[in-house]
Design a protein around this nucleic acid. Structure first.
Length: 140
DNA sequence: GCCAACGTTGGC
DNA sequence: GCCAACGTTGGC
């Protein structure tokens, strides 16, 4: 079981919209970055992820599950990039802000902190457990 | 609104 | 193949 973090601007695609898609989920399209795409290639159904709101909010607000492995993104004319499908699992009761993550020394080496522009990134087991705890949500 | 980080493009 | 120019992202 691997863990991930999906970053989105809430004004473009929010966790509330993801929840509204229900158990069928949606495709996570629009990624045009090879590092992010490579992370998605490594995903398998059943993997879990954080849903992070960037820009105006800057917080982990929900948990999602990967439901379909990497496949081509039809919105990419170059054919170079793909996407996965995810569905919302549950909201994080106490959203974990970027400020809180930066204030926690054990999270200092997260990709979220080190590579602010990366939109899809891996999360290791201990980081996953700690952020779940900070957010007041059970890890699964 | 500004700026740093960084990926991409295009000229050479 | 190098590198300057440029565009985009995202934190502040």
């Amino acid at each position: 079981m691997a863990y991930w973090l999906f970053k989105s601007e809430p004004s473009t695609w929010s966790f509330a919209q993801q929840v509204a898609c229900g158990t069928k989920g949606t495709h996570w399209n629009g990624v045009r970055n090879h590092q992010a795409a490579n992370n998605m290639k490594a995903m398998v159904p059943g993997d879990l992820g954080f849903f992070y709101h960037s820009n105006e909010e800057r917080a982990v607000v929900g948990l999602v599950e990967v439901i379909k492995p990497y496949y081509p993104d039809p919105s990419d004319e170059s054919g170079r990039f793909g996407m996965v499908d995810i569905k919302a699992l549950k909201a994080v009761p106490n959203p974990v802000t970027l400020a809180a993550i930066k204030a926690e020394p054990r999270l200092a080496d997260m990709a979220l902190v080190r590579q602010s522009r990366l939109s899809v990134m891996p999360v290791n087991d201990s980081h996953w457990a700690l952020i779940c705890k900070m957010g007041g949500v059970s890890a699964k």
